[in-house]
Design a protein around this nucleic acid. Structure first.
Lengths: 151, 151
DNA sequence: CCGAGGATGTTGAAACATCAACAACTGCGG
DNA sequence: CCGCAGTTGTTGATGTTTCAACATCCTCGG
């Protein structure tokens, strides 16, 4: 039982900023996407990740890791997206436990229609306010944070 | 109607990293706090913000802005925390519409008990992986992003 | 070959967030 | 003083996430 090492001023400042971003940024992204597509940002990311995959299909586990979500969350999300006809499940040929999530043509169409508005919102919320150096630093710092989040 | 300006490589890299963090970081923070206190991170932030305020009281609107949340979300959260006896509502003396959220002694005790574990988790997830320069850059970049999130 | 333990996904209930609608109040212009 | 527009905060319905429990299948040591 050691005594707590508290945050210094710089750390606290960074943390307060980051905490507010963690609160408000997903909400802002959700708002825009829901208006244009009816689905939240987490669902959009699933479609977007699938669209870039081989044959527009991914194993559930890989998809979960790529998007940064949990199996349960993904399972519910895929069920909802499947019901809209935007993706479908297939059995995994090599592993009978596995499930493949595959983007349908309808899902691809929704994605393509929503992409411009989404990119514009990402620019408005993030990149419009950053210099190229800021972007490079943001990329570097976030890259250092990711490993601790995926155990 | 202009043609979309897509993200370049550096922007896309930063965005993919950030998107994953926006997904997984709140989940990770929630996990730890829920185990120790039974409340999610968003609720903890409310208590923490109140603890630093004058008289441990804040107007709902100010509290919402400080935490980066919406009035509705805050209203539900405060109701839940009130039921646990960790804060209470009072009428605002200067404005009959207003409500003050005030941290109770019980709420303060919970906060103090949870703080060390929470700080340790924040260190484990974030600051353990960053140099002091990284922290300063993170603080600067996040500061640039906040204004666009609070309208 | 077989059985234990790990991996993969799903399910249902409870907690939390979002949205739209609303009630109550303020303050300002006429 | 009146009334109307804007502010403040709540509520309930709906959608999403979390957690725990579970079913199924793979792998590997014995």
């Amino acid at each position: 039982m050691s005594t707590t090492r508290w945050l210094d001023d710089d750390e606290m400042g960074a943390w307060l900023n980051l905490a507010q971003i963690l609160m408000a940024m997903p909400a802002a992204l959700d708002r825009q996407l829901r208006e244009d597509t009816g689905i939240p940002h987490a669902y959009y990311q699933i479609l977007a990740t699938l669209s870039a995959a081989d044959n527009r299909c991914l194993r559930m586990t890989e998809l979960a890791r790529a998007v940064g979500t949990t199996p349960s969350r993904l399972s519910h999300a895929v069920a909802s997206l499947q019901q809209r006809g935007w993706l479908e499940r297939r059995a995994c040929p090599s592993d009978k436990r596995g499930q493949l999530a595959c983007l349908t043509d309808a899902g691809m169409a929704v994605l393509e229609a929503a992409a411009p508005g989404h990119v514009a919102e990402v620019r408005r919320l993030i990149f419009d306010h950053l210099t190229p150096e800021d972007v490079a630093r943001l990329r570097a710092v976030t890259a250092k944070l990711l490993p601790a989040l995926q155990p």
